[in-house]
């Protein structure tokens, strides 16, 4: 919902109160058992993925043709894939890309969304109309078709591919997910800033001669932090799925980089022989996104119980 949100924090609170505020949030979050479980699961998986080069039993790209589609064993806990590569190691390395892509795309979306939403709300007038109409337009676009068209075009655009080399697909995915992912944040921030703008502390800052820029980014935006944090958490989950869907349709991450989505799309040909190859990455995505959603839900309750829709 995009009704204007009341601020979660007041700007003019003392430092000690801020600590207690954080403690309060944590206390509320802790009560949410699924949320706690979620954050633990994400933390562990993310840590394992980050540490993949040190903890993964094998590298992700070394083929072993003597052990193609091997069954799980002491040396390969989840078995091996169509080229005899260790599935567990690949899942860990792929997680780095999947998490990186979704995290970066979410952060960029938030940055654009905050910028557009706060500027439109603060300055109002023609700027408001232009920016928010543009946001509405972007929101009402058929996103998946355009996402596919954009990915296809960028992939087929030679100069870009030559400039970026191996990481082209990663950059492209981040770009398209950002282009189509900032609008909800913009609307959230817009509503929030609009209501804060009228408040006394804004007036006071302005009277004291603070620049618009300063007011927006030191007072208004931090006060809209709660919904942004929630949107960001949930956004990471939906972007993991979006990346996987694009990879499934053949427009996602390409080797040499593995991602959870590309691991899934690559094994379509072996569905009958070894459905487990598709099962593991799918299940990983499900678990991670589920954990993120639980954590996001708990975070929403904890930051502001009134935010619960």
């Amino acid at each position: 919902m995009t009704v204007p949100m009341p601020p979660a924090f007041d700007d003019d609170v003392l430092a000690t109160e801020e600590v207690s505020q954080a403690r309060l949030v944590w206390r509320r979050f802790r009560r949410h058992r699924l949320g706690l479980l979620g954050i633990t699961v994400i933390g562990l998986i993310a840590l394992a993925c980050i540490l993949a080069p040190w903890i993964a039993p094998y590298t992700f790209d070394k083929p072993d043709t003597s052990n193609i589609m091997g069954t799980p064993s002491a040396s390969h806990w989840l078995g091996t894939d169509e080229l005899g590569r260790d599935v567990l190691s690949r899942l860990l390395y792929a997680g780095r890309i999947s998490l990186l892509v979704s995290l970066v795309a979410t952060l960029l979306s938030i940055m654009i969304g905050v910028l557009v939403g706060s500027i439109a709300a603060y300055f109002g007038g023609a700027l408001d109309t232009v920016l928010m109409r543009f946001t509405d337009i972007m929101l009402s676009l058929p996103s998946l078709p355009l996402l596919l068209i954009f990915s296809k075009t960028l992939r087929d655009f030679g100069p870009l591919r030559r400039a970026l080399g191996d990481n082209t697909s990663v950059v492209i995915i981040i770009t398209v997910l950002t282009i189509f992912g900032w609008m909800n944040v913009a609307r959230l921030v817009y509503g929030s800033v609009l209501s804060l703008k009228a408040r006394e502390f804004t007036e006071a800052s302005r009277a004291l001669g603070a620049s618009s820029f300063r007011i927006i980014f030191t007072h208004l935006v931090p006060n809209s932090a709660a919904p942004i944090i929630v949107a960001m958490t949930l956004g990471i989950g939906s972007r993991i799925i979006a990346e996987a869907s694009l990879s499934f349709l053949g427009l996602g991450i390409v080797p040499p980089n593995p991602s959870w989505g590309s691991m899934l799309s690559g094994v379509q040909a072996y569905m009958f022989r070894n459905p487990w190859l598709a099962f593991y990455p799918g299940l990983t995505i499900l678990i991670v996104v589920l954990a993120i959603n639980f954590a996001g839900d708990a975070l929403r309750d904890a930051l502001d119980p009134r935010l619960k829709n």
Binding site: I68, M69, F272, N274, P275, W276
Partner: peptide
């Protein structure tokens, strides 16, 4: 060959 996990539908 390559019966995977032994679960071949």
């Amino acid at each position: 060959s390559g019966a995977g996990l032994g679960f071949v539908p």
